[in-house]
Design a protein around this nucleic acid. Structure first.
Lengths: 239, 239
DNA sequence: CCCGGCCGGTGACAGCCATCACTCGGTGTG
DNA sequence: CACACCGAGTGATGGCTGTCACCGGCCGGG
């Protein structure tokens, strides 16, 4: 049976076949059943705004499949992509727990399935299910960890080239496909979005990528980037 | 009776008179007693290294009194002060929970009292005491929240002046003493350290502060800074 | 088929700021 | 008292990169 957006939909967390791979969802049957009872599953198209920076927290979203970008922006309209969230992550936890406004905005960049849990239900869930609370603490630790990496990269990089090199290396470690020639990456972001990830402008990204091409460190064909000289990238990075 | 470093030492968390004010420590008597059983209290002089970035996590430190700076540094030796931790904060939680290396270094900048809890004990504590787990999740949420603020400031600020203005405004909201003339701040950091907080150089900090003085936005006398025109600072900030 | 919009590529230019190199005053120490 | 050391202040300079401007290619829609 075809499903919307060609997603493999799991209506029931208990029977979810990828549950074991997910840091948060990997909990005992009884806890997951409790989760099933309070969650609302929905499939969102690309570009859906899940929540907006500054908004009072309505609850949390568990990203079952698809990816979402977390952004923050200045009053001048400049946008910073804080993170690309992957399946398994829980979005909006910290704001929900603290009862403070969401500190970032979340927007799907692919069709995505999400489980929404209302704030009250989620808090009760944490209080009643110690295992859930523990997994939430882990999830938050992961978030803090990756936020620290971001801070390091933004604060310590000397040049924009360094930040971009670091980003490419990150991608190599994450979704890279290693080939004899080098690491092949699928980059589904525009130069504009890459710029927003490292806090610079589109033109600068274009220029640095051109430079890397000229120096035969990378090759670009459409949306695939082939990293030929990973070591050369590493040499550019001091963070 | 005089105590080392003139600190008011609490050997016993249960009888601690500031417990109620502390996000983490504000727990039921039974939970706090369990905490008392596994903690090691010690007083550290200024400049003590509690843990170092990259080190495997030994456990967590609860900051009872005094402040500590959390730093991260590049291979080139450039240092970024990620945060000044205040009493009540728990340091090293995320690394301890994940079992990954500490992502920052922690160093006391004043004489400080800390409770150390070994990793195994802490993890058991979280598993056995749901209330502790909940408070840890809150603590982590706070940490994530402040990390996000840092990311915003580092990534979205257009100029160094903007970052410094934002830092001054932060200080006004935190420890500022409001007077008819403006907000009086005690700045116990050197220009060098301020530079490390906003990812710039000492010279630039000196220059920007001089500029603010010339424009009569601030006055500096020794280690006290008087903010005369808070609004002027706000105008400099778009983040 | 043409047109508009989005994305990528490039050049010119100015401005911010990191770097280097001094100076100066205060503090502590031998 | 001389000296070292640290923090602060300042000038000169060069390079990175943000900004503005324009062009070309691609794609989808009328």
């Amino acid at each position: 049976m075809p499903t919307p957006y060609n997603l493999d939909i799991h209506n029931n967390c208990r029977d979810c076949d990828v549950r074991g791979d997910r840091l948060f969802c990997n909990m005992s049957d009884s806890t997951v059943s409790a989760l099933d009872a309070i969650k609302f599953t929905a499939v969102y198209p690309k570009g859906s705004l899940l929540f907006v920076e500054g908004e009072q927290p309505r609850g949390v979203f568990i990203l079952c499949s698809g990816r979402a970008k977390l952004t923050t922006s200045s009053t001048e309209g400049k946008v910073l992509i804080v993170k690309i969230a992957e399946p398994g992550e829980v979005l909006g936890v910290s704001a929900t727990i603290l009862g403070k406004a969401y500190e970032v905005s979340a927007e799907t960049i692919e069709p995505a399935q999400l489980n929404f849990i209302k704030r009250d239900d989620f808090m009760k869930f944490l209080n009643v299910e110690p295992e859930a609370c523990m997994h939430t603490a882990q999830q938050l630790s992961e978030k803090y960890h990756s936020a620290q990496r971001e801070i390091r990269s933004l604060g310590l990089s000397q040049t924009t080239g360094e930040k971009l090199a670091k980003l490419l290396l990150d991608w190599c470690d994450r979704g890279g496909e290693t080939t004899p020639k080098g690491v092949r990456l699928k980059v589904l972001l525009t130069h504009e979005e890459i710029a927003q990830m490292i806090g610079t402008t589109r033109e600068t990204v274009t220029r640095i990528l051109s430079d890397l091409k000229r120096r035969k460190i990378i090759e670009v064909k459409g949306s695939t980037v082939m990293v030929l000289e990973k070591d050369a990238l590493k040499d550019m990075v001091s963070v």
